[in-house]
Computed example of a mutant assay.
Amino acid sequence: MPKRILQGTVTSDKNDQTVTVSVERRFRHPVLKKTIRSSKKYRAHDAQNKFKTGDTVRIQECAPVSKSKRWEVLTAQ
């Protein structure tokens, strides 16, 4: 099964080797037919601490690194 890859914006880089990435998705409401934006935050592993707040990055699923980290940063856009 392929690993999911998501694109989002780094919202926090205060923790060591960890970034918080906000991923936004858009979908059409089934009844109202209005476009809705919803976002979700993921904690991703950043081994070299090279990504800063405001960067657009791609994250990929990985094996659990800690209690809350299940993603790793691939590249910056």
Rank of each mutant, 00 (worst) to 15 (best):
M1V: 04
K3S: 02
K3V: 01
R4P: 02
R4D: 09
R4T: 03
R4Y: 08
I5M: 10
I5Y: 03
I5D: 07
Q7F: 00
T9I: 11
T9F: 04
V10P: 00
V10C: 07
Q17T: 07
T20Q: 07
T20N: 08
S22D: 08
S22C: 11
S22T: 12
V23G: 08
E24F: 12
R26N: 12
H29A: 01
P30M: 00
P30Y: 08
L32I: 01
L32H: 04
T35R: 06
T35Q: 10
I36V: 13
S39W: 05
S39T: 15
K41C: 09
D46T: 02
Q48V: 04
Q48W: 03
F51M: 05
K52M: 04
K52V: 11
T53V: 15
G54I: 08
D55C: 02
T56D: 13
T56Q: 11
I59T: 00
A63I: 05
A63E: 15
A63F: 05
P64N: 10
P64D: 10
V65L: 06
S68I: 05
S68M: 05
S68A: 11
K69R: 13
R70P: 15
V73E: 02
L74I: 09
T75H: 06
T75G: 13
A76I: 11
Q77F: 15
